[in-house]
Design a protein around this nucleic acid. Structure first.
Ligand SMILES: [Zn+2]
Ligand SMILES: [Zn+2]
Ligand SMILES: [Zn+2]
Ligand SMILES: [Zn+2]
Lengths: 169, 169
DNA sequence: TACGACGTGTTATATTGTTGCACAAGCAAG
DNA sequence: CTTGCTTGTGCAACAATATAACACGTCGTA
């Protein structure tokens, strides 16, 4: 069993205030250690992402930023996102054009995402078996693996238990 | 060994004219069987995608279409792409905002893509082991799998043999 | 002080994708 | 054949996502 849940579903009973505070504290420590600056804008964007604990769109973040910082513009948020991506503090969900916080930014990795199509909850796995089987199969074809984009769309435990069905979108 | 290569890399010695003709003939048979219409526009877009045998952007297709059909506009190409996606004749590569032909449109499936970061070549796998390990791991977390987006970026056999390195982008 | 690196403000632009409505082409029932 | 329905296309505008270019300010350091 090599499954590592990097970030669990939001529902799965957790003290979310604590979860956000934790993520910000981790980010601050990590940035200090690396000698990079978690400026107010960057910190605020990271906080907005964690607050919702679900994939956030760049322009939704921009609207929120604008509410408190009149000068915010697209570059403001995209620069912050670039920084956070660079430092591994967030991941980009390609299939949604959205961004989620990473629960384990310390070691660089690519995420394996489970995305609920009903409630938008996202969990991040980092499973060595998944990585290995893909690398092996790709290797069989002579392909050298760089970055894996793995995004699984489906139903989270809560929504499944509530009777939502896959085919109903 | 459950690896099925749905669409191999373009390089791997193949008669490309034949490959395009084949794809179009398959598409025509399939559309007829299903009672849907492979109209001239749809057929032409599919052909443009197969001609290049690599991920094609919507607006690049639009430019090509416009060269021969003055009235072409964004909806023209997006409607054709929607149709082709619906019928499984092409796949969308989320990480590139691009579209590639599917080598096995008959049975619906999601693709597992190997994308060369140097030459843009794409191969499509449809590997049961990959699907299973992901479904199992997701299932362990109570997640019911719907659609998998799997896109591996790296180096194709040709580019790797030519000494291109992963880190050099 | 002077310099250089970095972060931000600002404006404009590029890229990717959608909506709405009118009209035409294909097809089936009468 | 012709009426009416469904599907496909033309067209215009727009929405959503992302980047470019340049000016300016702050801060650490030679
Ligand atoms: Zn939380
Ligand atoms: Zn859910
Ligand atoms: Zn070919
Ligand atoms: Zn290559």
């Amino acid at each position: 069993m090599s499954t590592t849940v990097v970030t669990p579903f939001k529902h799965e009973g957790h003290d979310h205030d604590h979860c956000v505070d934790d993520a910000l504290a981790r980010a601050e420590r990590q940035c200090e250690r690396r000698g990079v600056r978690l400026t107010p804008i960057r910190r605020r964007v990271l906080e907005l992402i964690w607050r919702r604990h679900e994939p956030m769109k760049a322009y939704d973040l921009l609207d929120m930023l604008r509410a408190e910082r009149r000068s915010a513009a697209p570059p403001t948020v995209y620069r912050a996102l670039d920084f956070l991506l660079e430092e591994g503090l967030i991941h980009r969900i390609e299939s949604l054009n959205a961004y989620v916080g990473c629960g384990d930014p310390d070691r660089p990795h690519v995420g394996q995402f489970l995305i609920c199509r009903h409630c938008n909850a996202v969990a991040e796995m980092n499973d060595a078996d998944v990585h290995k089987v893909l690398a092996d199969k790709a290797g069989d074809l002579g392909f050298q693996v760089g970055t894996q984009t793995i995004e699984i769309n489906g139903l989270c435990p809560i929504c499944r238990d509530q009777g939502h069905a896959l085919n109903a979108v």
